[in-house]
Amino acid sequence: MTNPNRYRIVPVDSQNFWAVMALQVAPEQIHFIEPNSVSLAEAAYDRRFDWHPYALMQADTVVGFAMVGAWDREEQYIWLDRLMIDRRYQHQGIGGIFVELLIPFIFEQWPVKTIVLSYEPENIPAEQFYFRHGFHDAHRVDENNGEKIAVVEKAQ
């Protein structure tokens, strides 16, 4: 059984930057997500959405990545974006562990009621994965890229 206490969410910094850059999804997933180099460049230089990049750690090993940002203070939502687990660590339940950790982490860090994410319509495994972990179909499409939008609301 996997011990969830071995898993942590930490900001990307000079200590883990290169490990995050080296992460790769499986070949069949490449067209569904931008490389981490693009995400880290956006977080560093495109300040419009105030992205916060995070390394997903298993013990002392970087196994994944996620960004949180595009916070809408008025509507009280924020985006979880670019969530990925390195291909070497997929199919071990680690992605689910991190989604289960990310949801309360985000609600603790930002005063929001909703977490939003999007995925390619043809990426059925991603849809099933997110729905298994509390997200549901928002019945909306991201007008910027045609991706389906899913949300999870903060428990009252």
Results as ranks from 00 to 15, higher is better:
90 Q>L: 09
91 H>A: 15
2 T>V: 13
65 F>M: 00
52 H>L: 11
4 P>Q: 14
59 A>C: 15
108 E>D: 12
105 F>W: 11
39 S>D: 02
136 H>I: 00
143 E>S: 14
66 A>T: 07
98 F>G: 05
150 A>Y: 08
122 E>N: 08
125 P>E: 06
24 Q>G: 06
120 E>A: 10
40 L>M: 09
92 Q>W: 08
103 I>Q: 05
63 V>L: 06
103 I>D: 00
96 G>A: 06
138 A>G: 01
132 R>C: 06
145 N>P: 01
62 V>M: 05
119 Y>F: 12
32 F>M: 05
82 R>H: 09
39 S>Y: 00
146 G>K: 13
42 E>I: 10
23 L>M: 12
12 V>S: 04
105 F>M: 03
77 Y>T: 02
11 P>L: 10
131 F>T: 12
137 D>Y: 04
132 R>F: 00
152 V>G: 01
124 I>M: 04
18 W>Q: 13
67 M>Y: 03
106 I>W: 03
81 D>G: 15
43 A>H: 02
90 Q>A: 10
148 K>T: 08
80 L>Q: 07
55 A>T: 04
67 M>V: 08
22 A>E: 11
37 S>K: 15
104 P>W: 03
21 M>I: 10
82 R>K: 13
4 P>N: 12
109 Q>W: 05
145 N>I: 01
93 G>P: 14
10 V>D: 09
149 I>Y: 03
126 A>H: 04
1 M>F: 11
79 W>F: 08
84 M>Y: 04
100 E>V: 09
89 Y>A: 11
21 M>K: 12
146 G>T: 01
94 I>F: 13
145 N>Y: 01
143 E>C: 07
25 V>A: 04
125 P>D: 03
72 D>K: 10
123 N>H: 07
147 E>L: 03
110 W>H: 09
36 N>P: 00
17 F>N: 11
151 V>N: 02
141 V>T: 11
48 R>P: 01
91 H>Q: 14
28 E>W: 05
129 F>T: 01
70 A>W: 05
114 T>S: 05
122 E>H: 07
108 E>R: 14
38 V>L: 07
5 N>C: 11
115 I>P: 01
98 F>C: 02
4 P>I: 13
54 Y>N: 07
74 E>W: 13
39 S>W: 07
104 P>R: 08
12 V>E: 03
72 D>A: 07
62 V>E: 05
136 H>D: 07
41 A>M: 10
150 A>W: 05
124 I>D: 00
87 R>C: 08
154 K>F: 06
5 N>M: 14
47 R>G: 09
11 P>T: 12
137 D>M: 04
117 L>I: 12
44 A>R: 10
56 L>V: 01
104 P>S: 02
27 P>I: 00
60 D>K: 06
51 W>K: 01
61 T>Q: 14
44 A>V: 09
116 V>W: 05
66 A>H: 03
130 Y>W: 10
141 V>R: 06
53 P>T: 10
132 R>K: 15
102 L>R: 05
105 F>R: 00
38 V>P: 02
19 A>P: 09
25 V>Q: 00
